[in-house]
Each structure stands twice: as C-alpha cells, then as structure tokens.
Design a protein around this nucleic acid. Structure first.
Length: 847
DNA sequence: GTAGGGTTAG
C-alpha cells in the first residue's frame, strides 16, 4: 500500500513551494526493518580510526550491511564535528544508492538528530526532505529531531508543514512529538498554537509544562510563565531543575525580586539539585532584579565558575552601569580562566564604551584579532560603538566600511555615535541612507531630537514612523512622553497612556511609569500622574521622586510631605534627588518652617550632605517668602561657593519683593561668575523697570546690545485638535490674528468691567502709557488664551504653555478671565503650573 | 527521541 501525503493540501502554503514534504512510498518500518546494531564503529574516537575500520569492512563486503552503516553513522554523530556529520550524511547517501531505502530509517533519524543538535537546523531539514524523496516514511522518533532543527533554523514554514505530516500520520498523540511542537511554536512566537497543542494533550509530562513555561518566559510573557508555574505546583505536579530554571528566568525578565524569591523557595522544598545552569539562572535573576549583593555572593561562592556564569556576571554589571566591576571579572578570567569568548568580549567592549576607555577598548580589539573573532558581526558592532563613544569616528567608520554584512545594529551604532560626537548632519545622512531603518533607528532619531529640545519635530518624526507602519515600543513612548511633557501636550499625553494600557506587549515598568508620571505632571494633570503612580506594580526612589515632583509643579507642599513620609514608611531610602523635588514643592507651597526641617534632616537623619542644588532650593524658598536677609545669610554660610543659580534665585526673589539693593548685589555676583548670561541682564533690567529706574534700564539694555546678548522672545503655545499653535509677544503675523484681534478687545472690555486694570510696571520699555497698555495687552499668553477661547467649547479647560515666567499682569488677567468666561485656565510657565478657576489661582498669588 | 543559563545599538 503506497502512502501519499501532501501537507500542502492540509495547510495553506504556496503550492509552488519547493518546501512541501511529500511521502511517496511505503513506510520502511513495514518492510522488514529491524533494530540495527552499532557494531564495531562504536569504539572509534576519531575520523581517522573510523575511516581505517571502514576500509577493512569494505574489503570483507560488510559495507552493504545496514547494521554496519548504522554503527558508522552513530559514531559520526557521537563525534559531532562538522566533518563527521557531513561524513555520516555521505555514508547514508551511498547506502541508499546501493541498497535502496529499506533499513535506512534509523540512519536518517540519526543524521537529522546530529545536525539538529549541533545547530545545523537547515541541514537537518534538507536530510528530512531527502528522506521523503527516496521514499522513507518518517516515524514518531523523526519529528522531535526535525522540529528541534526547524526551531533552531527559525524555519517556521517547514515546522508547520511537519505538523501537517504529523497529523496525517497519526503520531500527534505521542507526548514527545507534542512536546516538540510546543517548543517549536513557542520559539516561533506562535503562543496561540503553543497553547492549543498543550490544551489538547490527553496526557502531559513535566517536559510539556516546562516547554510551555519556557515558551512564555521567552516570548515576552514572563508574567504568564510564572503564573503557570505556580498553578502547576498548586496542582501537585513536581517541577524538575529545568522547570525551575525557566520560572526563575521569567522572574528575571519581570525584575520582580519578591516573586523570584518565592519561586526559588521551591528549589529547597522539592530538594532539587542546584547545578551550574541553575546557579547561573539565579545569579542572572538577582542581578536583573537589582540585588547585586546576593548575585555577587552566589557568584563568589561558586567553586566551578564556567564561561556562561562569568558572562552572566559581566553582562549584568555592564547593564547596571558598573563597567569597572565587569572588567574586574574579565581580569580574573584572563588570569585564572575560563577563557573569554566572543560573548565575554561583547560585554568587555561595552564596558570600555561606557567608561570611554580607549586604551582598554583597543586592547580588547587586540584580543579579538588574536583570537580571530573579528569576523563576528556583533563584535564589530560593539567595536563601532566603542570607537564612537571614545570619540574616534574615523576608526568606527573604517570598521563599518570593512564589514561585509552590515546589520541594522551597525548602522544604528554609527548613527547614535555621530549624535554623541555632535555630528548631527552625518547622523541624519546615514539615517536616510540606511536600507531598513528599524525601531531602534527611529528611536535614536526621535531621542536625539528630544535631547536637542526639538519636541515638535520629535513628535512629527514619531507620526512619520507610524505612517511607515513601525509600531512604537516602551523606549519610543518614553521619548515621546518626555517631548509631550515639555510641550505640555495634554491630548497626546492621554493618547500615550491609553496606548500603553491597550498594548499587552508594552510593559509599563519602573522607567516608563516614572516617565509617564513626569509627563502628566508637566502637562498640568497631577490627577493622572498620581493615577499612574498608584497603578505601578513597584516603586523605586525615582518613581516617588516623580510623584513628589508632580506635587511641586502643582504647588502642593502638604501632599508632597505626605508622599515623602509614605515613601519612608515603605522602607525606600531617600536620595539627594528626591530632596530637590521635596524642597521645591515646599518652596512653591510657601512652607518655610517645613523647609528648614527637611533641609536639616538631610544630613542629620539620612546622612545626605546637602549639595548646591539643595541650598538653591532653600534660597528660593526663603526668597519667595520675602525672607531676603535670611536667604542672603544662608548663602554666606554655605560650605561651598554659591553658583549662578543661587544668585539668580535671590535676584528673582528681589524682583518679586522689589528689593533693588539686594538685587544689585546679586546681579554683581552673577556678572562676575557668568558675564554673558542673557537671562540675568533681562532680570536686572526688569528690576530697574519695575522700580521705575529707566536710566539704569537703558544702561543694561545698552550693555546687552554691546555684548551681543539677546532676550529670547516670550512665547506661549496651545494645543487644539492635536495641532500646536505658538504665539510670540506682539507678533501680528499669524493668520489667526484676524480672529484674535476682536476677541482681545472683547476680553479687555469684560475683564475691566469686572475690576481688572493693567499693571503697567510689567512693561519694560520707557514708552508712554497708551503704548505700554498696548504692549501689555499683546503678551503672548493673552494671545494664546484668546485663541483658545475661540477654538474650544465651553467647559473645556484652556491650556497654555509659556517659555518664561508669567508676569503679574497676565496672572491677574487670567484670574479675571477664568471668572468672567467661567473657564478653567491652566498655564505652565518655565517654573510651575497655575490653575485658574473662578477668579483665583492655585498658587494663591505666590510664585 | 522532547524542555533550561550568558550576546552589541535606542
């Protein structure tokens, strides 16, 4: 009976495909096939011995005996070298040519197993095709080998076709075959097929469970992997060391130390052996979860550190920004072994990149050349990155040009390197030249724009990326969140958050969560910021810092204190940065007493010596509260030299409290420290102007002109229907001015009726009163508010982002507008948020 | 005969 199976008819693949497996003949097993003997080849240790024995056998005519050839092939597979495997394949071919397919099934299975286990999946598939061609029907032992080969070769189509053959042959109830299918589908990322095979199994063994858990862990579903593991244990199924390794690596991916420890407890509970692979998984998990001490302890205690373990330690050190520690491991390896391989060198080069250590980088390059590793793409890419970070673009380009197979990593390393060297033009040129820009390329470009404060351009590029069908990942979204925060683009902020919630494969981890909090805080949406914060699975000091920062933006000092205390309560150690945000919040909230208290506690309770920034916060706090003498006294008693920022804070406070004497003193200090600082001249001229000292104003203006210092124009922007509109003071060139003009007149009338009168001291030019009034009415935030009122529906808040600090007249104006037009107005200036509702502001006129 | 650890660029 002839069996003809064409899986192409079962599974929708192209009928012209030459990959189709076709079985044409009777199964060999049905034609008197018996279990072979390995024969005397079994003792052969080398190809030479093997060939000598083979020629003896040929003389006696035994070379036609299936059991002899089977033995020869088995020996070759055992040796497992490229040469021996190809030799086995040749022997098999000759045997079939001479004797026909009968008796060759075991040989085929052996050769497929040999290729597959050595990572030659593509050759395993070829041999399987040859097997079908000559009419040998595979058996249930063939498929696990074949599928493993398909997995290693990433041969998705061939694997699916094999599944078709398996179904037709009725071997799909074999647990080994099913387990192999699970593994194959999991590795191909086909998690639904994986689950289907698992669910349909009538009996499962521990390998079935392990394959599924491992599949989930690898396929970005570490959460499901751990859940499944815990369910399995709950059901009374006993895991083995392999299962544990899969579950532990899932915890590493999740960076969830608590969960990791919970899973680890089962090692002891089930009395499982901790071998090197398990040790490695544990070290990796501790490292990825940030418990460096535990990882280091395990590593140090391990008496037979193998190559993989050393590599794990090194790569994690480098990943954690501890390149020096990584290079110490490398040193130990060079002295006592194991001998570094290409994976070791990848981490080593990366460590040199981080430290910009050209000397060590070059010696790594030397090691690579001596050990003939330079043909490996990844090594070359790492070297390109290293040379770029060490500011040697020529060396990097030379390497790049020499590479026969440039990967996207090569291009991306070069592009980001050019940005780091400040050669923006070359970076853009490469981006346009590269054949397939991938997600990382786009992220690099978007990130560079954000770095350069070109936020609108960054968002534009993001839209372009989307139009080209490239899906954003967490890195894209972090960059986007940053741009969005700086622009105060509320609608985009909401879109980003919704997008992340919708996408299962984007993990809102610590860093992304923190970026979102910061984004919402900057967009004047502290409520959403706190919502993100409360939904975070874990919070580190950065997350708490961002949340406290959101309170600082809002000027909510009390809530900031509550958050800080809650953080301490949860056992999180404060760092220097969190104190900056806390003190800023207290400053914006006008909480002087609390400010002194927390400032004092830094060193007393937490051993953190206040830095210049902290003194800056305190000067700001005291200055805002009008305690100028106290602020000046603090500056005089600082343990370090006060910098420009400190004096600027004091100067700003002087302006607010109209203290010209102290202002002059501060301005002198600034002039000494940084004579070309543009903002300082503006601020000083503002002080003179508000005190009516026009001669001095003119003097400063002249000085600015002579020094070529220009005051940056004040600008305000609003976002309407996803479009950002930017207004500059008095700029009448915008096409929208036709509609804004009458609105401004109307607004002016209505707010004057409600009691507003313009505060002309805010105009910094010596012009007559009507002119002053006119200039004042054209401040950019007024234009932005008018435009927003026209273009948004009643009940919608008006949101304005301003590049400079809001002036006191615009502040009064906005309060009045919020009442007269019954609209919430939210203005973010360069310092903080102002929420105007019903005629008053959240800052309580204190800013 | 099936399942497990380390890998460069943003």
């Amino acid at each position: 009976m002839a069996t003809v199976i064409t899986p192409a008819s079962l599974i929708p693949v192209s009928s012209t495909s030459n990959l189709t497996f076709t079985i044409q003949h009777e199964p060999a097993s049905a034609a008197g096939y018996s279990l072979p003997r390995t024969g005397s080849f079994k003792n052969c240790k080398s190809m030479l011995e093997l060939k000598q024995l083979q020629s003896q056998i040929t003389k006696t005519g035994q070379d036609q005996d299936p059991s002899s050839i089977t033995g020869l092939i088995s020996s070759c597979i055992e040796m497992g070298t490229d040469v021996s495997l190809d030799y086995a394949r040749k022997a098999l071919e000759v045997f079939v040519e001479d004797n026909g397919p009968t008796g060759s099934l075991y040989m085929f299975n052996s050769v497929i197993r040999g290729y597959s286990s050595r990572g030659f999946g593509d050759r395993a598939i070829l041999v399987f095709k040859e097997m079908l061609c000559v009419g040998v029907c595979p058996d249930k032992y063939t498929f696990p080998f074949l599928l493993s080969g398909c997995t290693k070769a990433g041969a998705f189509r061939e694997g699916i076709q094999a599944h078709g053959v398996i179904a037709k042959m009725g071997v799909c109830r074999d647990v080994f075959v099913q387990n192999s299918l699970i593994h194959f589908y999991a590795e191909c990322g086909e998690i639904e097929h994986t689950r289907k095979v698992f669910d349909e199994m009538s009996e499962r063994n521990i390998v079935s469970w392990t394959s599924l858990i491992g599949g989930y862990a690898k396929r970005n579903s570490p959460k499901e992997a751990v859940t499944l593991f815990l369910e399995m244990v709950e059901m009374g199924i006993v895991p083995n060391p392999v299962t544990l390794v899969c579950a532990i690596s899932a915890c590493a991916k999740l960076q969830d130390l608590e969960l990791g420890k919970k899973v680890c407890a089962y090692i002891g509970e089930f009395g499982l052996e901790v071998n090197t692979v398990m040790t490695n998984a544990l070290v990796d998990m501790y490292m990825k979860c940030g418990d460096i001490d535990s990882a280091k302890r395990l590593f140090d205690e391990c008496t037979d550190k193998n190559l993989v373990l050393c590599n794990t330690m090194m790569s994690n050190y480098v990943r954690h920004g501890m390149p020096v520690e990584g290079l110490v491991v490398l040193d130990q390896m060079l002295q006592h072994g194991p001998r570094p391989d290409r994976v070791t060198m990848l981490s080593a080069i990366s460590a040199c990149s981080q430290t910009e250590d050209l000397l060590h980088g070059r010696s790594c390059h030397g090691y690579i050349l001596r050990n003939a590793l330079e043909h490996w793409d990844n090594i070359c890419n790492a070297l390109i990155d290293m040379y770029m970070k060490c500011d040697k673009p020529q060396a990097a380009c030379a390497l790049f040009n020499r590479m026969p197979n440039k990967t996207s990593v090569s291009w991306n390393s070069l592009i980001s390197g050019f940005f780091k060297c400040g050669d923006v033009e070359s970076a853009w040129q490469l981006f346009q030249e590269m054949p397939d820009a991938d997600l990382v390329s786009w992220n690099t470009m978007i990130g560079a724009l954000v770095q350069d404060s070109m936020f609108m351009e960054a968002i534009e590029l993001f839209r372009k990326m989307q139009n080209q069908g490239v899906e954003p990942d967490r890195v894209t979204l972090m960059e986007l969140a940053s741009a969005c925060g700086y622009l105060g683009a509320v609608e985009l902020a909401k879109w980003i958050y919704l997008y992340i919630q919708k996408k299962d494969d984007i993990q809102c981890d610590l860093r992304l969560g923190t970026a979102l909090i910061d984004m919402f805080a900057r967009c004047g949406d502290p409520h959403s910021a706190m919502q993100v914060f409360s939904h975070m699975a874990q919070r580190d000091v950065s997350a708490w810092t961002a949340a406290i920062g959101a309170m600082a933006m809002e000027g909510n000092g009390k809530q900031a204190i509550e958050l800080f205390n809650e953080m301490l309560h949860q056992g999180i150690k404060p760092d220097a940065v969190v104190f900056v945000n806390l003190l800023t919040a207290l400053s914006h909230g006008g909480l002087v007493e609390e400010g002194w208290e927390f400032f004092g506690s830094m060193d007393d309770s937490f051993g953190i010596k206040p830095k210049v920034v902290h003194y800056g916060c305190m000067v700001d706090l005291l200055g805002r509260a009008g305690l100028l003498a106290e602020a000046l006294n603090l500056i005089k008693h600082m343990p370090m030299e006060p910098n420009v920022v400190i004096w600027s804070s004091l100067l700003a406070a002087c302006r607010m409290h109209k203290n010209v004497d102290v202002a002059k003193y501060a301005a002198e200090k600034i002039a000494q420290l940084d004579p070309e600082r543009p903002g300082i001249h503006v601020l000083l001229s503002n002080i003179y102007a508000s005190a009516g000292q026009w001669n001095d104003v003119a003097k400063v203006r002249l000085q600015m002109k002579e020094q070529g210092v220009q005051k940056g124009p004040g600008s305000s922007s609003v976002q309407i229907d996803g479009e950002v509109y930017e207004f500059t003071s008095g700029a009448e060139t915008r096409p929208e001015m036709d509609r804004i003009e009458p609105m401004l007149v109307e607004m002016n009338c209505r707010v004057r009726e409600a009691g507003y009168s313009p505060n002309l001291t805010n105009v910094l030019l010596d012009v007559d009163e009507p002119e002053k009034e006119y200039l004042l009415s054209r401040h950019s935030e007024k234009l932005a508010i008018a435009f927003s009122l026209i273009n948004t529906g009643q009940g919608m808040p008006v949101r304005v982002v301003k590049n400079l600090r809001i002036c006191s007249d615009c502040h009064t104006f906005a309060k009045s507008v919020s009442k007269v037009y019954n609209r919430e107005i939210i203005i973010r200036d360069n310092n903080r948020f102002h929420f105007f509702r019903h005629g008053s502001c959240s800052c309580k006129d204190y800013w």
